[in-house]
C-alpha cells in the first residue's frame, strides 16, 4: 500500500478547527508524535456523517505520542504514552 507516511515517521496533528462530525479529538490537535502503524484505508467519517454518496477513502494511521508532549502538566512518568487513530488528512510532516 502506497501511503504518505511510513511507520516511525514523525508527524504533527493539524491544529485547525472543524465543524460537523470528526474523529480527531481536540486534545491531540497540534501535538507531535510518530506513526505507530498503518491501519488501512477507510471511508472518511466526516463525509459518511453527512450521507455523502461515495465518501473519499482515506488512510488511517495509529499514532503514538509521549504523554509529556500532550499535556502541559502531565503528572505521570516520562515513558507513558498515548495512541490514537488519525486519518491522513489530519496529519502533517513534523
Amino acid at each position: 500500500m502506497d501511503t504518505k507516511f511510513k511507520i516511525n515517521d514523525e508527524i504533527i496533528v493539524d491544529s485547525r478547527s472543524s465543524s460537523g462530525h470528526c474523529r480527531t479529538p481536540a486534545y491531540i490537535r497540534g501535538k507531535k508524535g510518530v506513526i505507530e502503524r498503518i491501519c488501512g484505508r477507510y471511508p472518511n467519517p466526516e463525509e459518511i456523517a453527512l450521507c455523502k454518496k461515495d465518501p473519499k477513502i482515506v488512510t488511517l494511521y495509529r499514532c503514538r505520542f509521549k504523554q509529556m508532549d500532550v499535556w502541559d502538566n502531565y503528572s505521570g512518568k516520562a515513558s507513558d504514552t498515548i495512541e490514537l487513530e488519525i486519518y491522513e488528512h489530519w496529519l502533517n510532516d513534523a
Binding site: R23, T81, E85
Partner: peptide, 11 residues
C-alpha cells in the same frame, strides 16, 4: 509504562 489507547476511529 502506561499506554493509553484512545479508540477514536475504526479500530
Amino acid at each position: 509504562e502506561i499506554k493509553v489507547h484512545d479508540s477514536n476511529a475504526d479500530m
